[in-house]
Structures are given as structure tokens and as C-alpha cells.
């Protein structure tokens, strides 16, 4: 596939650059392929390469002390990862793993710095990308800090549960997230938490309420 100018041109980092400039930038970009399940970066470790996903998808996640995985972002074609270690010189806040076969375009930290010095438009674009990322993270922080998402998920399950198979409402995690005003990732986390507490059991495409009273207590409702 090789590094394509059209792909580079479509990236927010290189928006507004003319074709000659894009060709100059392309010299610094290299292609890397990875298979499903490959770890591309590890939380807490430095990384000297900024990557753009050209094909496939990767996930940015953290693992808690008890081994639970919390996905923070799914990175799709046209999106990037490793900004924090590359731009701050610090360590990666997330681990990055491929979700299937992927094709990446990479740029080394020193080359990105060269490009930013030579073409200030790229530096402005980087600021724009980082601002968008801050907005996404603020939204997640709100969910983590101020709202009792698990309680809202519990209340919703009580509202929509049927008393026999075929009678209950069918909802995707995305729909549940939309209904209670949170991120899909938070719904997944809350469902796991409710399952750990024994209030529900997840059997493939069914969420089975095993302890209504426990669910009511989490939801903060009396009946």
C-alpha cells in the first residue's frame, strides 16, 4: 500500500498544506503493519513515534490492578495515537492494542518536530487536534467524577426488563448510553460492575437480572 499522499492530506495534522509540502512531509512517514492482538504501546512507557491508523482499528485502554480493562478510545482510520509521549516527552497514559490486522503510518518524534518547525501550519493543526482530545477527555472525566453512571444503568435495567425471554426490551450498549447520557464505554464498565456484585448475569446477548433488590439499591429506588 505504501504511504499515500491522499491519506496524509486527509489527516487533521496536515490539513491546509499544499501538495509540494505534503510530499516533503511524506518523506518522514513510514508504513507499519500489525496483526490482531499486537501491543503497540504500553502504559507507563515512553514512545518516540506518532502513529496514524490507515486501515483497521486499535484500542487505547488501561488495566486496573485487578486486571480489568477500561477502553478509553477506539482509534479508527484517519485518527492518531501516541501524542502524549511524543509531544510531552513523557510516558504513554494508555496501552495500545490492535483489534484486527492494521496498517499504520508512523512519524518519529524528531521528524515531527522538524516538520512543525519548517511548516508552522502543522504546529497549529497539532494544537487543534490536542484541543479536541482535551474536550473528549473532559467529557469522560465528567462521567467518572460527577455522575453515578452505575446507578443510572441499574435504574434503566429495572425499567426495561421483561419477565420472560422475548418479553424484555432489546437495547445496544450505545442505545443505553444515549438513554442515560453517558459514554458507551461507561455502560460496559457499569454492566461489568453490576455483574461482579451479583445483581445481573450476562449470557451472550441477554442481561439477566438475578437480584432485583440489589439493583434497586444501586439505582436508589425503593420499589
Amino acid at each position: 500500500m505504501g504511504v499515500q499522499r491522499d491519506f496524509i492530506k486527509s489527516l487533521p495534522y496536515f490539513a491546509g498544506l499544499d501538495d509540494d509540502t505534503l510530499d516533503s512531509v511524506r518523506k518522514y512517514v513510514f508504513e507499519k503493519k500489525a496483526e490482531r492482538g499486537e501491543m503497540l504501546s504500553f502504559e507507563g512507557e515512553p514512545s518516540d513515534t506518532l502513529y496514524f491508523v490507515a486501515d483497521g482499528a486499535v484500542k487505547a485502554f488501561k488495566t486496573s490492578a485487578d486486571g480489568k480493562e477500561q477502553i478509553f478510545r477506539i482509534i479508527r482510520p484517519g485518527e492518531s495515537f501516541n501524542e502524549v509521549p511524543v509531544l510531552s516527552g513523557g510516558v504513554n497514559p494508555f496501552s495500545i492494542e490492535t483489534m484486527g490486522p492494521v496498517v499504520l503510518n508512523g512519524m518519529k518524534k524528531k521528524d515531527l518536530e522538524t516538520v512543525m518547525r519548517e511548516y508552522p501550519q502543522v504546529a497549529l493543526n497539532v494544537i487543534h487536534v490536542l484541543s479536541m482530545r482535551v474536550q473528549e477527555l473532559i467529557s469522560l472525566v465528567e462521567d467518572f467524577s460527577f455522575r453515578h453512571v452505575t446507578g443510572r444503568v441499574a435504574k434503566m435495567l429495572l425499567e426495561y426488563a421483561g419477565h420472560s425471554i422475548g418479553e424484555g426490551r432489546r437495547l445496544t450498549q450505545q442505545e443505553m448510553a444515549g438513554m442515560i447520557g453517558t459514554a458507551r464505554e461507561m455502560v460496559g464498565r457499569s454492566l461489568k460492575s453490576l455483574e461482579d456484585e451479583g445483581a445481573i448475569r450476562i449470557e451472550r446477548n441477554r442481561i439477566i437480572v438475578t437480584d432485583q433488590q440489589a439493583l434497586r439499591e444501586t439505582a436508589g429506588v425503593t420499589r
Partner: peptide, 11 residues
């Protein structure tokens, strides 16, 4: 693409 869950109270 969607993967809906059916919500059911255990009998």
C-alpha cells in the same frame, strides 16, 4: 451494526 442485549428478570 448493532448487538442488542435483551433484558430479562430471572425466573
Amino acid at each position: 451494526i448493532s448487538c442488542p442485549f435483551e433484558i430479562v428478570i430471572e425466573e
